[in-house]
């Protein structure tokens, strides 16, 4: 039994070692290890936001304290937000990833909390919406797809990774609205994540994929799928350089998912300022530029009042949309 105990101890020490692997001590804030919470499972967009930022912040020496990335999945971010607002309102050493998922959720009243219940720190980049089909699809261009869609609005199935009322669904609905198609006929199939939705597309089980450019970058590059349009108001670079924007076909829809961090509601002013400045330095580093290019992300840096206004505007837009689309009464 003693041996078993020893193995147990060794295990805990090893696992714990992963958390405490860094050495650092320096005067001033943060004086303790910092926690970055990804309110979803590893491998997704929030997780990547946390891990990529943590990596660049460490490599560039902008934060000397260890940064620990913790996954706290549940309810598309609600579980983590509940924890922060209820139990950790004064915690100075925690940042949580957030994105447009929060504003869409607020618009359809799926989240009991809002960004006003926490302290938004910064938006760091955007990932634009994209529509894609399989490489051997009969739709050679966005125009073909749209024409067929107009003829039979219920005949085209879109696979996405947000729940109904979520961003991917809203993207389809916005396109349908721009084309004057009846919204009740839309066929949007929700999958557990971008990868599952892509697999359904590659297997030929759905007509098209709706998601974000970053999610399909690898497949667009290798040619297994054909990106038909980017839902943006500016051309993307890199892999998506030659992919047209939806508005070039008269479908005036732009849909970006921004990502960033929020802090506890009662974070001190000077600590908030530290993070605003630190992220400001981070987005200017070479390492961050590399990250953006690899992930097909587009840079967007907002803090303070600008971020507030951005969030207010976006929420108003989604609230209007949700009403028009009949997602809320």
């Amino acid at each position: 039994m003693r041996l078993f105990g020893r193995f147990l101890l060794a295990g805990l020490v090893l696992v714990g070692g992963g958390l405490l692997f860094n050495d650092a001590s320096q005067a001033g804030y943060p004086d303790k290890p910092v926690e970055f919470i990804a309110p979803a499972n590893p491998g997704g967009g929030w997780d990547l936001t946390c891990r990529m930022s943590a990596q660049v912040l460490k490599e560039a020496g902008l934060v000397t304290q260890p940064i620990v990335v913790v996954n706290k999945p549940g309810g598309f971010g609600v579980v983590a937000m509940t924890d922060i607002t209820r139990n950790r309102a004064k915690d100075q050493n925690v940042l949580v990833a957030f994105s447009a998922v929060l504003t869409t959720q607020m618009a359809i009243k799926k989240n009991p909390f809002t960004y006003k219940d926490v302290t938004p720190v910064a938006a760091l980049f955007v990932d634009y919406g994209a529509i894609a089909v399989r490489k051997d699809s009969k739709y050679a261009s966005f125009k073909d797809l749209v024409e067929d869609w107009k003829k039979q609005p219920g005949g085209i199935s879109f696979a996405g990774s947000s729940p109904p009322g979520g961003l991917d669904h809203i993207r389809i609905a916005m396109m349908a609205k721009a084309l004057g198609l009846p919204l009740k006929d839309l066929r949007y199939v929700a999958f557990q994540g971008g990868a599952d939705a892509l697999a359904a597309l590659l297997g030929g089980h759905v007509t098209a994929f709706v998601g974000e450019a970053g999610e399909i970058a690898g497949h667009a590059e290798s040619g297994t799928i054909r990106p038909l349009a980017i839902l943006s108001d500016r051309k993307l670079t890199g892999i998506f350089e030659k992919v047209p924007m939806a508005k070039e076909f008269g479908v005036n829809v732009s849909s970006a998912n921004w990502r960033g961090f929020y802090a506890a509601p009662e974070i001190k002013k000077e600590n908030l300022k530290f993070w605003e400045e630190t992220f400001g330095k981070m987005v200017k580093t070479k390492q961050w530029a590399d990250v953006l290019e690899k992930q097909a992300w587009v840079d967007l840096f907002l803090t303070g009042d600008k971020l507030q206004k951005f969030l207010d505007d976006e929420l108003a837009m989604y609230q209007n949309l949700a009403k028009e689309l009949g997602l809320v009464q």
């Binding site: 590893p42 491998g43 891990r51 990529m52 990868a195 690898g218």
Partner: peptide, 27 residues
């Protein structure tokens, strides 16, 4: 072979590869 993480565990591997600068893809 396809760059698609089909389970929670392979999703972590996918994320870890992205972090090291390798984008899992059919290639």
């Amino acid at each position: 072979t396809m760059g698609l993480p089909a389970s929670a565990v392979t999703a972590v591997l996918y994320g870890a590869l992205l972090m090291t600068g390798v984008r899992p893809s059919p290639f």
